[in-house]
Design a protein around this nucleic acid. Structure first.
Length: 874
RNA sequence: GCCCGGGUGGCGAAACUGGUAGACGCAACGGACUUAAAAUCCGUUGGCUGGCAACGGCCGUGCCGGUUCGAGUCCGGCCCCGGGCACCA
């Protein structure tokens, strides 16, 4: 070995190792992206980052998991694609622009450049030739193109939708910008506004999206449950309540949807949403009601806000008729009825629905019991403290009495059907996807508004509609709408002057198909080409659990739309899904006098703790004044609690940071950020380096002769191969990278304990260090690359074959059996590996400590679990 | 409020199919090396407790209850924390 190499072997110098390894990969052309196409393909994809400025620990975690899987699959003989791109449109760029007057484009591209450099410094095997940014017209023109195709097919359409309106800034607010019902900058009470928007008809795909969940064995069960609940398929009955013409003033029917048609005879009133046409109609000569509906229009639009607000309601003075009894039922407006679900109206059955029960008690509305428990009596109205919501037997319902609730639903639906008063229906909780955003930094919606021709789609030949990149938003309104050169245009139909649509698309549109574009990022003639069917579906998708519903559901929908158009040959985009847990950090903030909120980095505050060590608040280091504690939350730009990994990479090197992230916690689990432990990962790499150096410096190594090994050498070799088996299983099947690292650490501990310098001892040692170099490559590729070379192996470790355990090395002569007495551990015995039940039982009874407990008692039962334990029941 | 997760030593965690609770690592403490410190190496480390010692015992996986020879793991009820709730991405 040349002397310079000897020197390199002496000191563990991460910077030098990274340099050596990356040069070696570049010169040999062995980045994991460039591999023989004769191998079976494997597409490993991480969710693309939002270029917020700098990487945070959540990114490092995500991309290290992806890189571990990528490198493992590469070593197992796959042609692996691991691309990277930027989810580059979005609100934070506009916020940064408002803060420092910089155009969002400039801010975004600067961030991308910095973060790309960071990713490269971490040594991820990314194919950078396929990089995309969603704010690039070459990318988003295909958003626009497919949107136009959806418009042609009727999948995209226009209707009104509700937005948060800041009356002071005269601007639409994102939900994130509404804090306690007020605008984030102005503190003004937010109002709801109805404006025209474009929607994508995802509800047409609801059944397909739901059913196909059963055919995704590679997805976590919890994600599939969340998606199924989100789609929320309910089978029920649509019931028509004819208007009472005297009180409503016209003929018509109020449609409601219910899953409990069996309780129809227990309905004592109906309730409609504040936005319901019937409610609007009643306000004419009812100023109090008009005021109440106005009040309902204040506050945010989120479901959480609607569901937690105080239940309020008011009678409209209108009545409808019961479809079976013809009885008059009052119409109420209630803020707990959602316009967006079913028909925006419900029949209220206070005796059998908890929300109706509480509402009825509060407003003095009558209760009528129509269901009794299967094995009990019907409850007495005056003594009821909660609604009886369980299914049971129908009572007080004329001809339906005695039926089970299930039978009654069918019977009532039938009778309603005969009278044309209703029918069975399936409804979904899922709503169509509103994609219009009244925001600048997004993909323009390719529509032209012509005073003569109406809304005209931009012809394909005029795509892309390019977003001007030099505008700087100031917080009020949409700067696009103020940009005459963008807005003013010519109608493609009549040639007259017209105006462009200034709404842009939801950024979820960008991320709904980017994973296809990587397959053919260089094609400027088509959205996708044949290569998309080679690489996709994605074999392994990795990203945060926070995307379990929206992004993943939109992507599944988008893929089906493209499938139906014949653009791709697959319906599901992601075969396997790994949802990584969040990386959390403390959140500190101050509320401004105007209602705004400012967040502070945990680095910039001094926390205050109570006796139990719980954080109760903090002071800002800069001014010494108090800030509030907001608990733990996911690392994000907007909460100012991200931790930049750069300082750690600079101090310890990329491999230590990668290894630590993998060792700290299994990938699906939430991680509360702490730097403690980084030191341990670093120490491990140093110890490995030192031990391998000592071994290499010991001179030449003879051939391993397994037949001539001593017992100690055989035991060490058994551990080497047990580790190979475990690490392969942990990375390849279980995705528990933390236990894989732990097993390698245990093997190194065993190696450093051994002082066997005999020729065959050194041969076993060589086998061990080679195994560790291979097993650790996915987590710490730079260190392993240089180790591999120093161990005298040819070629690059990243293209070496993944090791396989030698079954003959794993054989054990004797095993330890645990002995319990009444389920409590009382002793252990070593028995031959192939010992039968009888002899194990006898060995157990002979154990001295066990005898103390058994002595003088009768053994009633003996449970023998072969290879594991014996339990004596006395 | 609704849906989905999670809760195990001082800390991050392990225990994969109901079978030895705490592997591996951090921190702490003790020791070796050193003029000294850092680094490194060796040892101890869930709590209580018996024994000179060898070696034992009792308790212990958020809380209450259940199933089982045996429960961190399964069932019922609760508490707390995190994620999502359709315009943060």
């Amino acid at each position: 070995m040349p002397e310079s190499d000897q020197n390199e072997m002496m000191e563990f110098d991460p910077k030098r190792i990274v340099h050596t390894a990356q040069i070696s990969w570049d010169s040999a052309g062995v980045s994991a992206a460039a591999v023989p196409a004769s191998f079976p393909k494997y597409y490993c994809l991480c969710m693309l980052p939002y270029p917020s400025g700098r990487l945070h620990m959540g990114h490092v975690r995500n991309y290290t998991i992806g890189d571990v899987i990528t490198r493992y699959q590469r070593m197992n003989g796959r042609e692996v694609l691991q691309p990277m791109g930027w989810d580059a449109f979005g609100l934070p760029a506009e916020n940064a622009a408002i803060r420092n007057g910089m155009p969002p484009a400039r801010w975004t591209y600067d961030n991308i450049d910095y973060m790309r450099k960071q990713l490269k410094s971490l040594g991820f095997a990314i194919d950078w030739s396929r990089e995309i940014a969603t704010c690039d017209p070459k990318y988003y023109r295909w958003n626009q193109w497919l949107f136009l195709r959806m418009l042609e097919k009727g999948i995209a359409y226009q209707k009104t939708g509700t937005v948060n309106w800041d009356p002071v800034d005269q601007t639409v607010l994102a939900n994130e910008q509404v804090i306690d019902g007020r605008g984030w900058r102005t503190g003004a009470l937010v109002e709801k506004r109805e404006i025209p928007m474009y929607y994508l008809g995802i509800t047409k795909y609801a059944d397909r999206l739901l059913q196909a969940l059963d055919e995704l064995p590679g997805w976590p069960e919890r994600v599939k449950i969340m998606q199924a609940n989100w789609i929320g398929k309910s089978e029920g009955v649509e019931i028509h309540f004819p208007y009472d013409q005297r009180s409503i003033g016209k003929a018509g029917v109020l449609k409601v949807f219910t899953t409990r048609a069996d309780t129809l005879l227990g309905a004592t009133y109906v309730a409609v949403a504040a936005e319901h046409p019937l409610a609007e109609a009643a306000t004419a000569n009812h100023p109090e009601l008009a005021a109440f509906i106005e009040e309902c229009k204040q506050g945010g639009v989120t479901e959480a806000e609607l569901a937690t607000q105080e239940k309020k309601g008011m009678a409209t003075g209108q009545f409808v008729r019961h479809p079976l009894t013809d009885e008059l039922l009052p119409v109420w407006v209630a803020n707990y009825v959602l316009m967006s679900y079913g028909e925006g109206a419900v029949m209220a059955v206070p005796a059998h629905d908890q929300r109706d029960f509480e509402f009825a008690r509060k407003h003095g509305l009558p209760l009528k019991v129509v269901v009794k428990p299967r094995d009990g009596d019907a409850p007495v109205v005056t003594t009821m403290s909660t609604a009886l919501t369980e299914h049971g037997i129908i009572v007080n319902s004329g001809g339906y009495d005695g039926m089970t609730t299930e039978e009654a639903i069918d019977a009532i639906a039938n009778d309603l059907n005969k009278r044309a008063m209703g029918e069975k229906r399936t409804v979904f909780r899922l709503r169509d996807w509103g994609i219009s955003r009244q925001r600048y930094w997004g993909c323009p919606i390719p529509i032209i508004h012509c005073p003569k021709c109406g809304d005209v789609p931009v012809p394909d030949k005029d795509l892309p509609v390019v977003l001007p990149e030099d505008l700087a938003p100031d917080g009020s309104g949409n700067p696009l709408a103020k940009c005459d050169s963008f807005v003013n245009c010519v109608c493609p139909k009549c040639g007259g002057s017209a105006k462009r649509e200034t709404d842009t698309m939801d950024t979820f549109v960008d991320s709904s198909w980017y994973y296809m574009r990587y397959a053919c990022a260089d094609n400027d003639q088509a959205m996708v080409d044949e290569r998309v069917n080679h690489w996709l579906p994605v074999d392994q998708y990795i990203g945060g659990i926070e995307h379990a519903i929206l992004h993943l559901l939109y992507s599944r929908f988008w893929t089906r739309v493209m499938y139906d158009m014949g653009l791709v040959k697959f319906e599901e985009p992601f075969t396997r899904l790994l949802t990584q847990g969040m990386v959390l950090n403390h959140i500190y903030f101050r509320k401004g006098s105007a209602g705004g909120i400012a967040y502070y980095s945990p680095d910039d505050v001094t926390p205050l703790q109570d006796e139990q060590g719980h954080i109760t608040g903090a002071t800002l280091k800069a001014d010494g004044k108090a800030v509030e504690y907001g608990g733990m939350g996911t690392m994000s730009k907007s909460k100012a609690n991200g931790v930049d990994p750069q300082a750690l990479v600079d101090k310890y090197g990329a491999d230590t940071v990668r290894l630590f992230m993998m060792f700290a916690v299994p990938p699906e689990q939430t991680l509360e950020w702490s730097e403690a432990g980084v030191e341990g990962a670093h120490r491990f790499l140093k110890r490995l380096w030192k031990a391998a150096s000592d071994h290499v410096n010991g001179g030449s190594v003879p051939r391993l002769e397994t037949a001539s090994l001593s017992d100690e050498q055989r035991e060490l070799r058994r551990q080497i191969h047990a580790t190979i088996a475990k690490v392969g299983d942990d990375i390849g099947r279980r995705y528990t990278f933390n236990t894989a690292v732990a097993a390698i650490m245990e093997l190194l501990n065993a190696l450093t304990r051994s002082d066997d310098r005999s020729p065959q001892g050194r041969a076993v040692m060589q086998e061990a260090f080679e195994a560790i170099s291979l097993l650790l490559t996915p987590m710490a590729p730079h260190t392993c690359e240089v180790l591999w070379q120093r161990l005298g192996r040819e070629g690059s470790v990243v293209t070496a074959a993944w090791p396989q355990p030698d079954p003959s090395a794993l054989v054990r002569d004797s095993i330890e059996i645990v002995i319990q007495v009444n389920g409590k551990l009382r002793g252990r015995v070593a028995v031959p590996a192939q010992a039968d039940r009888k002899s194990i039982e006898q060995a157990a009874l002979a154990e001295p400590n066990v005898q103390r407990f058994v002595e003088g008692k009768t053994v009633r039962k003996v449970i023998v679990v072969p290879g594991k334990l014996v339990n004596l029941v006395i």
